[in-house]
């Protein structure tokens, strides 16, 4: 079956077509400005292998979407209500779906949400230490933003372990430009480093990650900056860029020869180790670490190191945590999941 995977961003939309049983794929990127025109052109370009299903990756589904959803009137209405929670990304998704339903008429469209996996995060993990009424009214809760990877990678890791899935304790480390660590206890996430937005958690390529909230207020006081300016500094000029003073990618950071990046690397390692320790405490231990994401190759450096650091004398030393890599790219993961969803809906 030909599955067209669409990954809308803010200004552009990545697409890829996965064919039947083969690993041959066509892929590209289109401008998000003229979606109608571009989708029509895409339909033309794919005339020899017309997509039979469309799978759309959606960055944010809040608490409304706890799993994949068929794009229809009710899911679109629910998505529209979520726009304020991801105001830069969801409008593009909505116009993509609108155009898609015109251009690819009668092609079923399935939505895959990065947040769905985290919709069942326990409240003790998802809630912040602020007034619960305020948090409720503003929809402030912690969730993750690489749920599709975490779900697939941890399932993969559990299969490799050969222990009952319910008892499996997995630390899932997603190495993307915005890296994210989740503790997964028997298929269910119990911690996540990201927050109400992707800004919290581990430092990313350009995002600051965890920060004393007072720093935000100090910048306002000392520099006279408004929230918009502070936001730009913290989301786009921070992270590895801010630490190293130049753009750095995760795999370069963990490459052996990167001596000049040692300080930035030390910061990230420190945060990763803390997050893993926290996840381990949350699960009462850890059986395996799994690395996914486009920079999963950094696992070669991180895996053995973390595994050693998470082994404790008089504790788990007889069963130190293993580590494995999950190398599947996101498009492939989504395409495979789309097949499963279709099979399930067909049998149901």
């Amino acid at each position: 079956m030909n599955i067209l995977v669409l990954k809308p961003g803010v200004r552009s939309i990545d697409w890829s077509l996965t064919g039947d049983g083969t690993r041959h794929t066509r892929a590209g990127q289109m401008d998000a400005a003229h979606i109608d025109r571009n989708l029509q052109a895409l339909r033309g370009a794919l005339a020899d292998a017309p997509p039979e299903t469309i799978a759309v990756r959606v960055n944010h589904g809040g608490t409304k979407f706890r799993g994949p959803a068929i794009a229809d009137a009710s899911s679109l209405a629910a998505l529209t209500e979520l726009v304020p929670e991801a105001p830069l990304h969801l409008p593009v998704v909505l116009s993509l779906l609108e155009s898609g339903s015109r251009v690819f008429q009668n092609v079923p469209t399935i939505l895959f949400f990065e947040t769905a996996f985290f919709s069942r995060l326990p409240r003790r993990e998802s809630a912040y230490g602020i007034d619960s009424d305020l948090a409720q009214s503003l929809g402030l809760r912690r969730q993750g933003y690489h749920g599709i990877y975490h779900e697939a990678a941890s399932a993969h890791a559990i299969r490799q372990l050969g222990i009952p899935p319910r008892r499996a304790r997995v630390l899932s480390i997603c190495l993307e430009p915005h890296p994210e660590i989740a503790a997964v206890l028997g298929n269910r996430p119990v911690t996540c480093t990201s927050g109400a937005t992707p800004l919290e958690g581990l430092p990313g390529h350009t995002s600051c990650g965890e920060l004393d909230p007072n720093i935000v207020l100090t910048l306002a006081r000392k520099l006279g900056w408004g929230p918009e300016q502070i936001n730009t500094a913290l989301t786009q000029r921070s992270g590895l860029l801010g630490l190293a003073g130049c753009p750095v990618m995760l795999d370069d950071l963990f490459a052996a020869e990167a001596a000049d990046l040692a300080p930035a690397r030390a910061v990230l390692e420190n945060r990763i180790l803390s997050a893993c320790g926290a996840g381990m405490a949350a699960m009462g231990g850890v059986d395996t670490l799994v690395f996914s994401g486009r920079f999963h190759t950094a696992a070669k450096a991180l895996g053995p190191w973390l595994s050693t650091r998470l082994t404790f004398r008089g504790g788990n030393e007889r069963h130190p945590p293993r580590w494995i890599g999950f190398e599947e790219p996101l498009d492939r993961v989504i395409a495979e999941r789309a097949q499963i969803v279709l099979l399930e809906s067909a049998t149901a």
Partner: peptide, 11 residues
Amino acid sequence: IPVFGWTADEI
């Protein structure tokens, strides 16, 4: 509606 935290195309 403030656009904070969400910025980069790539999350």
